[in-house]
């Protein structure tokens, strides 16, 4: 399967929009090569601002630019965008409901050998609790591109979680992308796997493995963590009566928590969560870390069997 990093979907969208919309401006904080925002800089140097290693200022400047009618896209590693500058995100941007877009690259454990300091495993929790903020977690290159295009079309703050490593391309340029709507990737009636980001590919793999054992798993891709598609989740709970969530993030506060909130309130069913279990990341090769932290297809399969046993 073809693989491509989501961060490049982000920059491709920026360049496309930059050509037709003079209000698109891009900012970075000394990571323009890594986030790939330098591709925008090369085309539109006058609309690109490198603020240096100063992420709080990055979001502050973006806020100011939005107040002059620009559509700023602030790019840096997601640990700094969602962590270092969190209060700027909260109070300046979200509380004021400013039209600022944030591209957080190098999210998750796949960031690899840099280790825990650089592996953002908290950003879903940190962003989804903020009123007014839309949070996109694209699963592949095309979804990242569409999320970025959609972000520019919307009014208000948007956070896009991007990754460093190439991940399988699962959707096509034609696949629909609508904020707040989950995407049914595979039909199934026995159990539902609800995933986001890089774990969507693992979940599809898991569904294939389960099929060999005659277990039909539904797979739902939540590219829009906020607003969350409650309807598709409640329907899955009703129809399959067992749910597994899967994310490249801490279990606490992430997709699993978000889905649980919906399920418990509306149609309680057994639920198992795949994610990093309350530990920091560590250095290692990206794929090796996915195995180490039990984020692989086989781990999802095990969780599906566990939840099926609970379903009875």
């Amino acid at each position: 399967m073809e693989k491509k990093a989501t961060r490049y979907g982000y920059s491709e969208a920026l360049i496309e929009m930059g050509a037709t919309n003079k209000n698109i401006v891009v900012l970075d904080a000394d990571l323009s090569r890594s986030t790939s925002s330098e591709l925008f800089k090369k085309k539109f140097p006058e609309r690109f601002f490198n603020v240096g290693i100063a992420e709080q200022n990055l979001l502050g400047l973006a806020a100011g630019l939005s107040l002059t009618g620009k559509i700023p896209f602030a790019s840096t590693y997601s640990i700094f965008a969602s962590g270092r500058a969190w209060e700027q995100l909260r109070t300046t941007i979200c509380y004021s409901n400013l039209n600022v877009k944030i591209g957080g690259s190098h999210g998750g454990i796949l960031t690899g050998p840099d280790g825990a300091s650089h592996q953002a495993l908290e950003e879903f929790a940190l962003t989804r609790i903020l009123p007014n903020l839309t949070v996109f977690v694209p699963c592949d290159f095309f979804e990242a591109k569409k999320a970025t295009l959609a972000a520019a079309e919307m009014k208000g703050p948007v956070y896009i979680r991007l990754g460093r490593e190439p991940v399988p391309v699962l959707t096509t340029p034609e696949t629909k992308f609508i904020s707040g709507e989950g995407l049914l990737m595979k039909e199934g009636q026995d159990v539902t796997i609800i995933a986001c980001g890089s774990l969507v590919a693992e979940s599809l793999q898991a569904a294939l493995l389960l099929e060999k054992e005659n277990i039909k798993a539904r797979v739902i891709n939540i590219h829009s963590l906020k607003p969350l598609d409650e309807k598709i989740i409640i329907q899955a709970a009703r129809e399959t009566k067992a749910i597994v969530t899967a994310e490249e993030h801490q279990i606490y506060g992430g997709l699993g928590s978000a889905v649980s909130e919906v399920v418990v309130k509306n149609y309680p069913v057994p639920l198992e969560m795949i994610g990093v279990n309350d530990t920091f990341g560590t250095s290692g090769a990206p794929e090796e870390l996915m195995r180490f932290f039990h984020l692989k297809d086989i781990d999802i399969v095990a969780a599906a069997k566990k939840v099926l046993a609970r379903k009875g």
């Binding site: 840099d114 280790g115 825990a116 300091s117 560590t282 290692g284 870390l289």
Partner: peptide, 23 residues
């Protein structure tokens, strides 16, 4: 993987590192 020599210094992994840094 498993090394006390993390990509950025981790005081929980290596004696001689006073505090973890990297940010």
């Amino acid at each position: 993987l498993g090394s006390c020599l993390q990509g950025h210094p981790s005081c929980q992994d290596l004696a001689g590192v006073e505090v973890s840094t990297g940010s």
